[in-house]
Design a protein around this nucleic acid. Sequence first.
RNA 1: GAUUCCGUAGCUCAGUUGGUAGAGCAUCUCCCUUUUAAGGAGAGGGUCCUGGGUUCGAGCCCCAGCGGGAUCACCA
Length: 579
Amino acid sequence: MQLSEQETVRRQKREALIKSGINPYPSELFEVNVTAKDIHENYEKNKTDYKNISIAGRLMSRRIMGSASFAELQDSTGRIQLYFRRDDICPGDDNSLYNDVFKKMTDIGDIIGIKGYVFTTQTGELTIHVTDFKLLTKSLKPLPIVKETEDESGNKKVYDAFSDPETRYRQRYVDLIVNPEVRDTFIKRTQMVNSIRTFLSNKGYLEVETPILQPLYGGAAARPFKTHHNTLDMTLYLRIANELYLKRLIVGGYDGVFEFAKDFRNEGMSRFHNPEFTQVELYVAYKDYNWMMDLVEEMVEKAALDMHGTTAVKVGKNTIDFQRPWKRYTMFESIEEFTGIDISEMEEDQLRDTAKKLSIDIDDSMGKGKLIDEIFGEKVEPHLIQPTFITDYPIEMSPLAKKHSEKEGLVERFEAICNGKEICNAFSELNDPIDQRERFEAQLELGKRGDDEAMVLDEDFLRALEYGMPPTAGLGIGIDRLAMIMTNSDSIQDVLFFPQMKPEKKPEVATEKDYVEIGVREELIPILQNLGFTTLDKIKEANPNKLFNDVCGTRKKLKLKDVKNPSKEEVEGWISAVN
RNA sequence: GAUUCCGUAGCUCAGUUGGUAGAGCAUCUCCCUUUUAAGGAGAGGGUCCUGGGUUCGAGCCCCAGCGGGAUCACCA
């Protein structure tokens, strides 16, 4: 691998540390008794507690002024300034801890442990006066340097932000080190999940785990990822949903079960879609979808409060208020509200005409349900910014939902829409096994007609229903989508630590072993790499005289005094070894 | 999958009509004991994403590819 100048320098510092008897990767524990946040919050109130502190973290900046220096230490809670003075950390005649270890062998990005006491500088910044420090981990790759100023009114301005999305997502660890707001987003996400988990557990529902590898993929309409189990010699699918397994547990007699589930869908990617994503699904016996709407309101309102201390959350240009009660529309009402057209009594042909009139793209394969869904998706959903429940969906779109108790052709289903996007989906679960079988068979028909997202028929699930599932309300919440809203993130990639990406291309380069095998001495390898001879093919075509000259010249240029120049015969030997 | 924009130093980014590759930060050397985007003096650092083409000459123009972003399509 080709190293940059800065990387080479850091490797040399690592060697120098070892030579001077300092382990750059020590194993003893380093006792920490305070955090940066703690100091900022509590020092003024209780100064005597901060006379003898011990803290560890990553060195994020250095300002060296001769025999004194300022630096910034970053731990998991934030940053704190450090003050090093040579005469304090080197009390005797030996100044090497300051002059050599700190000034020469320590870099931004190194992880260090500090002992000292807190004071306030002349400019009023809380600072740790360092009395002793220890290198805990040497960092070999230079971090992006992000700088920040703050004006009188506290407005922050960032210079040289680490902002390239590709590098940020590929090297999330760097993103987390240098961008504190990214760290915060993921803390918020976990707070949200914890809030929901606590809420559901406190209601007495049981958190469970169900299979991710499934012999049949069910519970949603989506294309699956397919894999193979060698011992059983069978196809398995990564789950697209866990709905059918959770319902089996309701059949088994639990009153309420929920699971935070990673689901996998082999479909397009966008800022709202990642191939793997998280849903929480909940099933509660003896309840219906109206009851479930109340629960969703209460639960999401509480999540907002737990995360922000308020129900009002700023998302882009909007402020979204999760305070109960949320608006409730039936799907037909909502369409009438936003288009002025009542489609509740329309047949397929009229719906098609209406869609055309509203200039919505449709095709002939669309049935009644799909047409209604298109009109809704085009004319209503994007306009629903504040949390809103939409109820009573067409039966064609909902093969697992119970038929509406009063309205023909509809099911007892609702979605909550927020910021123009669905955040949850719920229904009174279909528990009539005969009806369920017919719905599955209708899906099979769709599949035969080429709909590769149609549901498959799950005989075991039907068998479970035949034993009898109590009336049940079910819910699925897209955790990533909700986290996007709650953290004001534009893209799902900003709420997933490691969003899916194509692999980085690795240029094909010769390994050290390859070079050695054609007779190149190990110490000469960096020279060849520096000259661009990164593959054996390139050496194959080299002119031996030129290569000989270039190698000797580069040795001089790189100041590799300890390296012995090759002889011309040696160089000729490499080339003939490849050919 | 389609359209479109982007890819230059470790990081953030300039780069004129096609004519020897630039800045700030970071790095290295030196000065500096309360600084804070610390400061001062000096130095080094490049596969201009990859591969072709046009040209006397390409970071720049043309073609193809790779990677990424945005929009759309798909997608409960």
